[in-house]
């Protein structure tokens, strides 16, 4: 009963979040619950995520050499970034955005978040969908354009859970690396055990009224498949829908993936 009550409240507040978006004519993809009650001076915290492939510029549908000496052609990187929080020197945390669906199709992924003006010392966020949201929210409960909505196509309806990341493309796994890109890669990963949190502290920054403050991150897509020692073999581990037998590889990928993000 208590869980159902909490679930109802959660969906209620998400819907309220959507209604705020409508009232203010804002972009639903860049809104969150926390803004609704924010009335003091505020600026914008801009999070930039710069993609690269082993330090080179990165683009979709372009061939790169990576883990195992294979060549890769990445077609989709879509994932949830959630529970974004600012921290200050007193280690006080404030959630400034509940969840964003990141769909990589340009060199830089950018999120603009309204944040109360002040001095901050760090930032933290997670990859995936928080467990309580993951099991209580349905894509039909929120607006189609909401990150958790229908348009994202990130829900496993048969289990009532969200897919945390879709990583798709093709690989050339021939020994010489000169073959065709005929090895499909389809990694659709999601499960509470795959939720990964990252935090950075000791990075002082100021949010000033009506000003934009940017924090830049790099993410190395080549590192999604390897940490330099271990790697996922796209010849044999190229399809993963987070089944029971595929969970070890899914965990490995999510570990690589979350560690592939670094502060510039």
């Amino acid at each position: 009963m208590c869980n159902r009550y909490h679930s109802f409240l959660l969906v209620f507040f998400l819907l309220i979040g959507v209604s705020c978006e409508k009232e203010n004519d804002r972009d639903p993809e860049n809104e969150e619950i926390a803004e609704c009650g924010n009335s003091g001076p505020q600026g914008t915290l801009r999070l930039n995520f710069h993609a690269n492939w082993g330090g080179q510029n990165m683009a979709l549908n372009t061939a790169y050499t990576g883990a195992g000496g294979y060549r890769y052609n990445i077609e989709m990187i879509r994932f949830f970034l959630s529970d974004i929080r600012t921290t200050d020197s007193l280690e006080t945390e404030n959630m400034v955005k509940d969840i964003v669906l990141m769909d990589y199709n340009d060199a830089v992924l950018r999120i603009d978040i309204p944040v109360e003006a002040g001095n901050y010392d760090g930032i933290r966020f997670a990859f995936g969908v928080r467990s309580d949201w993951n099991h209580s929210i349905s894509p039909a409960d929120v607006a189609p354009t909401h990150p958790l909505g229908i348009n994202g196509n990130m829900h496993w309806d048969w289990s009532g859970e969200y897919i945390f990341i879709k990583f798709e493309g093709k690989a050339d796994t021939t020994a010489t690396g000169t073959g065709l890109f005929d090895q499909n890669m389809q990694l659709h990963l999601g499960n509470d055990t795959l939720y990964r949190e990252r935090s950075w502290t000791g990075i002082p920054y100021t949010i000033a009224d009506n000003q934009v403050t940017a924090i830049d991150f790099d993410f190395d897509v080549a590192a999604f498949l390897t940490d330099g020692t271990n790697h996922l073999d796209m010849k044999t581990q190229n399809i993963n829908h987070t089944s029971m037998s595929q969970l070890p590889e899914a965990i490995l990928f999510m570990n690589f993936f979350s560690e592939a993000f670094t502060l510039q």
Binding site: S7, H135, S136, S138, P139, A140, D141, P144, I150, N151, N153, H155, D157, W158, S159, G160, E161
Partner: peptide
């Protein structure tokens, strides 16, 4: 709901047969 009890509400369960490629093979949107 579902044979494995994986879906917590009837409202959420409704999505499954609609999107299942072996059932209605559609998208609720």
């Amino acid at each position: 709901f579902m044979r494995d009890g994986g879906v917590p509400t009837l409202e959420m369960q409704v999505l499954s047969p609609i999107s299942d490629p072996l059932e209605m093979a559609f998208n609720i949107a």
